[in-house]
Amino acid sequence: MKAIVQRVASASVTVNNEIISEIGKGICVLVGLSRDDSVADVDYLVRKLINMRIFEGDDGKKWNLSVKDKGYEVLCCSQFTLYALMKGNKPDFHQSMAPDKSRELYQLFVDKMKQNYKPDLVKEGRFQTFCHVNIVNDGPVTICLESPKAKSSTDEIKDNDS
């Protein structure tokens, strides 16, 4: 599972010229699911995203507080193209999870983000829909995250969360 995380001043998702979701200060998360991803990958990414220390504290200390610490918003957008491999000049998406299975796992990801944070602060785009994502990057700060590959979905993923 991959995520491109951008610290944003604001972000929104537009479908057919209508804003369907928008946030102020916080993070915009573009989420890609590979055909091998599991619930363990979802749990890992949710924990990392909510606790990622990319915001400045009131004391001016940089890289000190998380979206959770600050009470900021999160905008999640599914993006199967994160697992594209280039075959010549054309992207190949065989590493991406199939749409029916990915819909279920992506929804679990969004649900767990809401369960582990404040549900009203977690927004989302529209799954499997052509949309425009407007991001006003703050910094700019862009971080790529990828879940470690577990041997099975029941394996515990160990990580240094400091």
Rank of each mutant, 00 (worst) to 15 (best):
K118F: 13
S10W: 10
V110I: 14
E56C: 09
Q115P: 08
N51D: 12
K112R: 08
T142C: 07
G32C: 04
Q79R: 06
L65W: 00
K62D: 05
I4N: 07
I135M: 05
Q107A: 11
A3F: 08
K101S: 15
V67S: 01
A84G: 04
S102Y: 07
D43F: 04
D59I: 03
G139C: 11
K25W: 07
R35V: 12
K25E: 12
I4V: 15
I54H: 03
L49Y: 04
D155S: 10
S12P: 04
L85H: 15
I135D: 04
F55W: 07
V13E: 04
I27W: 00
R53S: 10
V110Q: 03
Q79W: 04
K68N: 13
K25L: 13
S152K: 04
T129K: 11
L145C: 06
D111C: 08
G125H: 01
L108F: 10
V74L: 08
E104K: 15
R53I: 08
K70N: 14
T142D: 02
D41P: 01
N116Y: 10
S147Y: 00
P140Q: 12
L30Q: 08
F127H: 05
L82D: 00
V13I: 15
D43L: 15
K25M: 13
A11I: 03
F55S: 00
S96P: 01
T14A: 12
S10K: 14
D138R: 04
F93K: 06
E18I: 15
A11L: 06
P91I: 05
L30D: 00
C144D: 11
S10C: 11
H132M: 13
D100G: 09
D155H: 13
F80S: 01
E104T: 11
G57D: 09
F127C: 05
